[in-house]
Design a protein around this nucleic acid. Structure first.
Lengths: 165, 165
DNA sequence: TATTGTTATACTCTATAACTATA
DNA sequence: TATAGTTATAGAGTATAACAATA
């Protein structure tokens, strides 16, 4: 049961800033690599990777893609539009529900991911795993996966009384 | 000694995506809170927090601030300009080296941080620490602090042979 | 009425390159 | 010459609100 309005202790503070700093630096390095090697933003890489690796048939509805990749619907429309213009995905109305749009990776999209992956892994090895043992990586995943699940489940901040302003 | 061009195993992959997802979601939540409660971006919060909490006399050189907060000099000039326009910091030429500019938090800047901090802590408790024990937070910090140090030390990616393009 | 997705728009942020001034 | 910082500029990304179409 978390206490209400006491400050965080220095251990928690340290974990928070370390997390944000590492992720920020890593994202910066990774954006660079993706842009150089495959002309992709990180969001575009996430979308392509999810369709290529996680999705049956390489297809998914826009709404399902939005959850866990992008934060606004219009942002997803924008990114999907860029991917489609580049020939990496195709959009088509769903058969079951004509309101929905199904996004599908193309062969070009799959090969773009393949093209980018080696350099991506190289950056991760150099930047992240050079200072993180295999056991450390396992622990990190075990710690953060429940956090991700919790954050995805909980409504961001609509509930609760609004603060001063 | 990391192997050259083999793919990452699923444990490492999982840790990587969990890290990026958690940090992305958390940053989103935190940006929202900072904007609502104190009209600050996360970068501005970082700058103010660093000056207020870490710096002797609340002052630091532009160059020193840039390291570890912002990635380009012009980006820092932009953010510092916004903070100065809002009356939260003051810029003045350094006495020792007239090329340098010293940035100093004002009282308004300190009180802005104080104004924003309770809500900030609340978000961290709800989003991050609700799914992370005290021991987990300690472990997380222990794992990520060396990574941060490594990433700050190593040149991002200027060295090494360039990839396909 | 609620949901899916798009569009228009406005804004924030970032980076590159050219430039000034001091060391 | 090298370093510190600013400026101009241009581009990428995001969010909000209004909208159209289907359920």
């Amino acid at each position: 049961m978390p206490d209400p309005s006491t400050p965080l202790d220095s251990v928690q503070l340290g974990a928070y800033f370390a997390l944000m700093d590492v992720a920020g630096l890593l994202r910066h390095a990774v954006e660079q690599q993706l842009r150089d090697d495959g002309d992709l933003s990180y969001v575009q890489f996430q979308l392509l990777a999810r369709l290529t690796l996680d999705s049956p048939g390489g297809s998914e509805r826009m709404t399902d893609l939005a959850d866990g990749v992008v934060y606004s619907r219009s942002g997803l429309t924008y990114q999907a539009g860029l991917l489609e213009k580049a020939g990496l995905v195709v959009r088509a109305p769903s058969v079951a529900d004509e309101r929905s749009v199904t996004v599908t990776v193309t062969d070009a999209g799959r090969s773009r991911i393949a093209q980018v992956l080696p350099g991506h892994v190289e950056v991760l090895r150099e930047q992240l795993f050079a200072a993180l043992s295999d056991a450390g990586a396992a622990t990190l995943g075990d710690l953060l996966t429940p956090v991700r699940d919790h954050m995805r489940a909980a409504p961001p901040r609509s509930a609760g009384p609004r603060r001063r302003r």
